[in-house]
Design a binder for these strands. Structure first.
Length: 459
RNA sequence: GUGGUUGUAGCUCAGUUGGUUAGAGCGCCUGAUUGUGGUUCAGGAGGUCGUGGGUUCGAGACCCAUCUUCCACCCCA
């Protein structure tokens, strides 16, 4: 009965130290988002199931966590489906709600629902957990935080450029300056598909192409042939995609070979304009990658993915979606956004020891408890120190000195203040600096000043 | 979802072809030091070997199931 407690697969507890580091990531991202004028919103952990289904492709839908209805839910299930053990059909009959799978689709729903309260273009950021019924692996969790920034209600490519700047700034601020931002455009991929006679197989083509960094061009070719794409088209498409050149010449070559492909040309133009709007220090982190496809099937224009050489999977990704709100009844609302994977960024930063060391020792002062009379006085003094902005606390029990000192050491307090009956009588305090071991006798009336001098001079 | 992998003390891990009482380091607790941490020394506590079945005279080791971990596929942050 009294089994060891546990948490579901792919979820984690966070200890104080980890929690502080995670908050450091959130705060850093938030700071940058706000500098660019984005506003925070929040949406519920659960959405109506039909809000989410059909937005992430067939594979994505399978990963949505469905919430079992309350009450006598089997009553409402179709008996034939139950008898046939048709899980998929029954699932929609016994579940009306689901945990959100990402922040983009709920955001689209949010925009449609609250359109009268918002001014467009609407720029928002959102930092909340999402859930996916994936098989957990390194850097892959069932509950994880996304930090999303999106702007909706503007076609301008300045938005793409701005988001790339934000990506660059956030990672710089986190100490992860050496990222690679890969950029592609769905319209270009679509143009290639049409120009090579693969127009009917666009989805399959992109899925195969997306794997090229793992299985190579030959692997992609095999994959495409295996999926039944015409060999001639496959060859032509791969010729396009495997071209290597700097951005300008690459786009010029593409443009030359996609003559007559309106959509493809539009994609090329978008890419040019986006790159042109980037400041040099951001521009140099961005490279065109025609093999970048991304499965999320709502993307229609730019696709962005951020990687780091020390991490196997992407740590940030996004793109433009022209008609996500259309599904919810609001037309002509183009949006573009990126999502930072906070948990992957955490893992990466931990591996590279990039967290500031100051995050650990957050506490300044602890008073040793010598008994009731002394501790009451200490409570008063701690209050005064807090008013000065120092974190201060009184050990709650009159435990053995050694135990209290060990606690102070483990928690990482900078100062331990000892006020026993002797000190109290003389209105003095023994202040021990734990970093040096030095101990000084200070008049109680000078205590605030003493701490100020110490912390001021050391910091 | 498919295939594989892992699980022994709080942590990191030993544990020979199944054989008596399952070990180490670190951490923790106590004392040396009844008002002083981080160092040192001495002692101590802590494990139904992930869980549930099975094979066997005998299982931490073998088999099955299940959960967990990590990996590949799939997909993605």
């Amino acid at each position: 009965m009294a089994n060891k407690p546990s948490i579901p697969k792919g979820t984690r507890d966070f200890l104080p130290e980890q929690s502080l580091k995670r908050q450091f990531i959130f705060d850093t991202a938030k700071g940058v988002f706000q500098l660019y004028g984005y506003q925070p919103i929040e949406t519920p952990a659960m959405e109506n199931l039909d809000t989410l289904t059909g937005k992430y492709g067939e594979e994505g839908d399978k990963l949505i966590y469905k919430i079992l209805n309350n009450g006598d839910f089997l009553e409402k299930a179709n008996q034939d489906d139950l008898d046939a053990k048709a899980s998929n059909k029954v699932a929609t009959q016994i579940s009306d709600r689901a945990l959100r799978y990402d922040l983009t689709v709920p955001f689209a729903r949010f925009v449609v629902q609250n359109q009268n309260e918002l001014s467009f273009p609407f720029k928002r950021y959102q930092i909340q957990p999402v859930w996916r019924a994936d098989r957990p692996q390194r850097g892959r969790y069932r509950e994880f935080y996304q930090c999303d920034v999106d702007v909706i209600g503007s076609d301008s490519l300045l938005n793409e450029a701005e988001l790339l700047c934000i990506v660059s700034d956030v990672f710089d601020a986190l100490g992860l300056g050496d990222i690679q931002i890969r950029l592609n455009n769905r319209k270009i991929l679509s143009g290639i598909a049409h120009a090579t006679g693969l127009g009917d197989h666009f989805g399959e083509m992109t899925i195969a192409i997306d794997k090229s960094d793992k299985i190579g061009v030959d692997g992609v070719r095999e994959e495409m042939i295996k999926r039944g794409l015409p060999a001639a088209g496959v060859k032509k498409a791969l010729d396009h995609i495997s071209r290597k050149a700097d951005a300008d010449t690459l786009l010029r070559m593409l443009s030359g070979s996609l003559t007559g492909e309106l959509e493809g040309q539009k994609g090329i133009d978008e890419m040019r304009k986006t790159l042109k709007a980037l400041p040099p220090h951001v521009r140099k982190k961005v490279s065109i990658d025609l093999t970048l496809a991304r499965g999320l099937n709502y993307y229609t224009g730019a696709i962005i993915e951020v990687g780091h050489s020390k991490f196997p999977s992407s740590i940030c990704g996004g793109g433009r979606y022209d008609d996500l709100t259309g599904i919810f009844g609001l037309k002509n609302m183009s949006g573009v956004g990126v999502s930072f994977g906070a948990d992957r960024i955490y893992d990466l930063m931990e591996e590279l020891s990039l967290f500031p060391t100051t995050l650990k020792a957050a506490s300044d002062i602890i008073f040793i408890n010598f008994g009731e009379t002394e501790s009451l006085e200490c409570m008063q003094l701690a209050m005064e120190l807090r008013a000065e902005g120092y974190s201060a606390e009184v050990y709650p029990d009159a435990a053995k000195m050694q135990k209290q000192m060990k606690y102070a050491d483990a928690r990482g307090f900078r100062f331990v203040i000892l006020i026993g009956s002797e000190e109290l009588k003389e209105e003095r305090a023994n202040v021990k600096d734990m970093s040096t071991g030095d101990q000084s006798s200070v008049l109680l009336s000078d205590l605030n000043k003493f701490i100020f001098d110490k912390l001021g001079s050391d910091d």
